[in-house]
């Protein structure tokens, strides 16, 4: 079943066109990897899908479970099961991590017609999920991401995903800044969520993550377009040859760049 269908998506940031016609189709149960050089627009795609107000869609459509995703506010998307793990999670001083996550979970549960969790049920859930990701319980009582190391921030994102149980998860460079042990933990966390009802989009620079989270499809994003798609082997090829060999294709596929 098609979960996410992106057609001819154009996105501008700060007046500058970044995405120039993305087409992408993700089915429930699949894991897609998106790779590509720095500045190619990977985070732009992730943010546009989660509804960041600075990312202006100028053309194209996105349908999520048959609904017009672009017409939804960021919180509506989240409540309907879209989750983005941020490349650079923001620090929010003074907002307790557990308090925030409880508010988020209950907003989502209420939207789904489920009862809100009380403090005891919530703590039990936190314990279960934090064990899975080996999250130090003290992280839960600290302010959201404040003073967290780069790796802790990334783990906290995956922890939130595990608690919120989205249908569509977009992980933006969750592997960068992680040592190999943390990478395995994160990969385990993600793999534990793989299910026939759920789709996952993994944005990464490194083939390494894909050894642990094995994708069904790999896409290469360059110059604001998907210039190549393939299976796992494509990721290995990229690892070998870099992105340079795709440039001519990218250039051929892209319309003449405007100043």
């Amino acid at each position: 079943m098609t979960m996410l269908e992106i057609h001819n998506l154009h996105v501008r940031v700060g007046g500058k066109p970044i995405l120039q016609g993305i087409d992408l189709c993700v089915n429930a149960g699949e894991v897609h990897a998106i790779m590509g050089p720095n500045g190619s627009g990977k985070s732009t795609l992730a943010r546009a899908l989660s509804g960041h107000p600075d990312y202006q869609v100028t053309e194209g459509e996105v349908s999520y479970e048959g609904r017009d995703l672009l017409a939804m506010d960021p919180e509506e998307r989240a409540r309907d099961g879209v989750f983005m793990a941020f490349q650079y999670p923001v620090e929010i001083p003074g907002v307790n991590n557990a308090y925030f996550l409880k508010a988020a979970l209950n907003a989502i549960r209420t939207h789904r017609g489920q009862e809100e969790l009380d403090a005891i049920e919530f703590m039990a859930l936190m314990r279960e999920k934090s064990t899975l990701l080996e999250i130090d319980p003290s992280m839960l009582t600290r302010s959201v991401n404040e003073g967290f190391s780069g790796g802790e921030k990334k783990r906290n994102e995956i922890f939130q995903m595990a608690v919120l149980e989205p249908k569509l998860a977009i992980l933006d460079e969750t592997d960068s800044g992680l040592d190999i042990d943390a990478l395995k933990l994160v990969a385990n966390g993600v793999n534990a969520m793989r299910s026939p009802e759920r789709a996952i989009i993994v944005v990464t620079h490194y083939q390494r993550l894909l050894d642990y989270i094995v994708p069904d499809v790999v896409h290469v994003l360059s110059g604001g377009r998907i210039v190549k798609s393939g299976d796992r082997a494509l990721a290995l090829e990229l690892e070998d040859k870099g992105y340079g060999w795709l440039e001519p294709e990218a250039a051929a596929a892209a319309p003449a760049a405007k100043a």
């Binding site: 989660s50 509804g51 960041h52 107000p53 506010d73 960021p74 919180e75 998307r77 989240a78 409540r79 989750f83 983005m84 941020f86 999670p89 923001v90 929010i92 925030f100 996550l101 508010a103 988020a104 979970l105 907003a107 989502i108 939207h111 959201v144 939130q160 919120l164």
Partner: peptide
């Protein structure tokens, strides 16, 4: 945005 992206 971070908070909204989590459902608030």
């Amino acid at each position: 945005f971070y908070l909204r992206a989590r459902g608030l």
